[in-house]
């Protein structure tokens, strides 16, 4: 099972609405969260390398998420599931929904991005693993599967941590895991015929109430404008003046 979140395209520079009520997102380009695209690519490679019965792409959100699921199908997923909701779910609610889906679908591996580039929460995979009481391999940059056991190399602050874990499990992807393939036109045509089921979230879970209230959205504090120095002599003098070297 691969989780694909629909997010604002990473090339878009988002702007805060002047009244602090949120972000100006009308009409901006949307895309699959880049880390989730890496997750799908990894699932495809696992199928090519080790075999996998089926790859299911899952998204939770508005009906528009079907666009991203179609892209996922064009990349190579076998079928797609949209859990439809117009609410903006918090990570725990997403994890609870995914847990209910895991119970239905019984996947051997759930793989998703380490974070979505909108909320930057970096929580959903860990929470799903927690609710499921299964292993988690976060920030994965290398993944091998040998029968019922997987080995992941994780990009941690101190370097590369290697862990071994039993399947089923949750893996979250880091940037260096792979480079996602480009979708070819014939694959886009083929994807139109692949099954994409839409299920109302109420049929899956009723446990999605928010716990947090966002009361304001503001632009970040700006740094004061600096100066351009003429040469390294002036630079060294400036740093000396500030007692930095």
């Amino acid at each position: 099972m691969v989780c694909l979140k629909r997010v604002v395209d990473y090339n878009v520079r988002v702007r805060v609405k002047p009244d602090g009520s949120g972000l100006a997102l009308d009409g901006v380009k949307m895309a699959i969260n880049p880390f989730d695209e890496i997750a799908l690519e990894e699932a495809l490679r696992i199928r090519e390398r080790d075999g996998a019965e089926e790859i299911v792409a899952v998204s939770i959100g508005s009906t528009d998420c079907q666009q991203q699921l179609r892209t996922g199908l064009a990349m190579g997923a076998d079928r797609a599931l949209l859990i439809e909701t117009d609410s903006d779910l918090e990570p725990l609610a997403v994890a609870r929904t995914l847990k209910a889906l895991v119970d239905r679908e019984q996947p051997d591996l759930v793989i998703m991005g380490k974070q979505a580039i909108d909320g930057d929460n970096n929580q959903t995979g860990q929470m799903l693993a927690s609710l499921w009481d299964r292993p988690q391999a976060t920030f994965t940059s290398e993944l091998t599967i040998d029968g019922e056991v997987a080995t992941a190399t994780r990009e941690v602050d101190a370097g590369l941590e290697v862990i071994e874990f039993d399947l089923p499990a949750v893996v979250t992807t880091d940037l260096r895991l792979n480079e996602p393939r480009y979708v070819k036109l014939p694959d886009i045509m083929k994807a139109k015929k692949k099954p994409l089921d839409v299920i109302a979230i109420d049929e899956i879970t009723d446990d999605t109430a928010p716990m947090f209230a966002v009361t304001n959205v503001a632009p970040p504090a700006e740094r004061a404008k600096g100066i351009i120095v003429d040469d390294t002599v002036a630079l060294v003098a400036a740093l000396n003046d500030k007692g930095l070297i």
Binding site: P91, A95, Q136
Partner: peptide
């Protein structure tokens, strides 16, 4: 909010049945 905390704290929060604030 290091890789250590990002890995651990959501798992703790879900066990406690609560959400988590990042960063």
């Amino acid at each position: 909010s290091t890789t250590f905390g990002k890995d651990l704290m959501p798992r703790v929060a879900a066990l406690l049945g609560t959400g988590q604030l990042s960063d």
